[in-house]
Design a protein around this nucleic acid. Sequence first.
DNA 1: TGTCAAACTTGACCTTGGTCAAGTAAACCC
DNA 2: GGGTTTACTTGACCAAGGTCAAGTTTGACA
Lengths: 248, 248
Amino acid sequence: MGNVLGQNARPIGDDNARGLTANDLATFSSLPFFCELGEPCLRKMTQEAKVVRYQRGDILFHQGEEAKWLHILLDGQIGLVGSASGGDETIVEIFKNGEVFIAAAVLTKKPYLMTAKALTTSRLLLVPGDKLLSELRDNSDLSLAMIISLAKHFRTLVREIKDLKLKSASQRLALYLMGLTPRREGSVIMHLPHNKNVIAGRVGIRPETLSRLFQTLKQYGVVCESQTVAITDLGILAAFCQEGDEIV
Amino acid sequence: MGNVLGQNARPIGDDNARGLTANDLATFSSLPFFCELGEPCLRKMTQEAKVVRYQRGDILFHQGEEAKWLHILLDGQIGLVGSASGGDETIVEIFKNGEVFIAAAVLTKKPYLMTAKALTTSRLLLVPGDKLLSELRDNSDLSLAMIISLAKHFRTLVREIKDLKLKSASQRLALYLMGLTPRREGSVIMHLPHNKNVIAGRVGIRPETLSRLFQTLKQYGVVCESQTVAITDLGILAAFCQEGDEIV
DNA sequence: TGTCAAACTTGACCTTGGTCAAGTAAACCC
DNA sequence: GGGTTTACTTGACCAAGGTCAAGTTTGACA
């Protein structure tokens, strides 16, 4: 019965929401998703948008609530947590700066399938869902950007499903570690961006198992000391977790 | 080391491909995805499309190949199979009549993440990927239909990930069975649409485990005799597998 | 109708990862 | 600096599901 959410859910009031500063607008319009779009489109989208802040542990929204806002993460880390009725929880995805999320819920006007939780202090831009939908109708550039973005994201979920069904917990942990660096050979020392409860949730195991798996991975050159991981040979680890099985 | 694919992969030549008959065109234009679109759009999409047939066991394409055709299943059953280097395989999705698949690979112009296999004799319509992309640029109705379709499909994958991480194998089997009927109460007798190796792959377990789980599910009123399943009380089964956990 | 192959089941055993409980280490806070 | 909380680790045990091997049943086909 892992509890990833914690208790300190503080729903924010509108006093937390503010109009966009020039700085926010600059950040926003330079994001991968939006940087290709024209000025008028950006202006319309941000017209009724708001910036909100959350503290670590805050809940942005709960599974089952109606999806009204497209979320754009300006700063921080957000985890999407799936919960079962027994109280069990798992982290389905973790987002970082510049990522757009829960588009699918907004587009289908369906309830959120997951609860969003701030893993660190975070700043988000919220764009009203109906604004997005009407803009999609008018702007084919935006539509195409949305299609490509959804399709890419879709493929990461397919990879996730394959990993869950075909790989062992230690292989998934290794994949998580490989995901922290773009490098694929030689050695590397990294700071873990999440605490170990979060990592366990992301990988789909219990924290106790995570501890033990880090012991196991020592034989593949992985050394973990508190928040720091050293990998002596990325090639060896890649071979162990069979990254790139999609090309088999 | 389950082998879901089997050996009899018979790549089809172009002799299997034919132009569309009037009948095919009618079928095609009545599909949920396309029925809202205008006549000119349909004509352009089908201009260079072709109809292909496969026998049970045939491979449509392999994981890793470049995605060139949007696949529309006119008739039959297709399974998307993910493989790992050890030879392990799992069925990520199963499609039936009228469903459109591997759009994400076509849209991103990336290699297929899965191998497609005909689970029964099947007929498909293949639309060239570049035709689809150019049509998306021109036609905002098509774009919107694609966005909604991708978003819906996206949400089924999210549910799948949640189920894999939060539910037991027997709950997933129960969910699979519940997925075979729209009914949610009373009793029902159904014909299993797939053989048990396929079901095991879909649920993410071994065939041996499937046999045993059917024994387990007897206590929830599930009786399986060869290809037929009887469920005495769908409500009980739904409670067991906690369908609708997304609303927790 | 007999034969062969494929599909499915069953049993014995093993491995992976979960559970529960206790303990240590680090962070936070007056 | 002492006390509390939170994060993490370790150990002993357990259960779910996988593996291997041996059946049985089914179905296709000669």
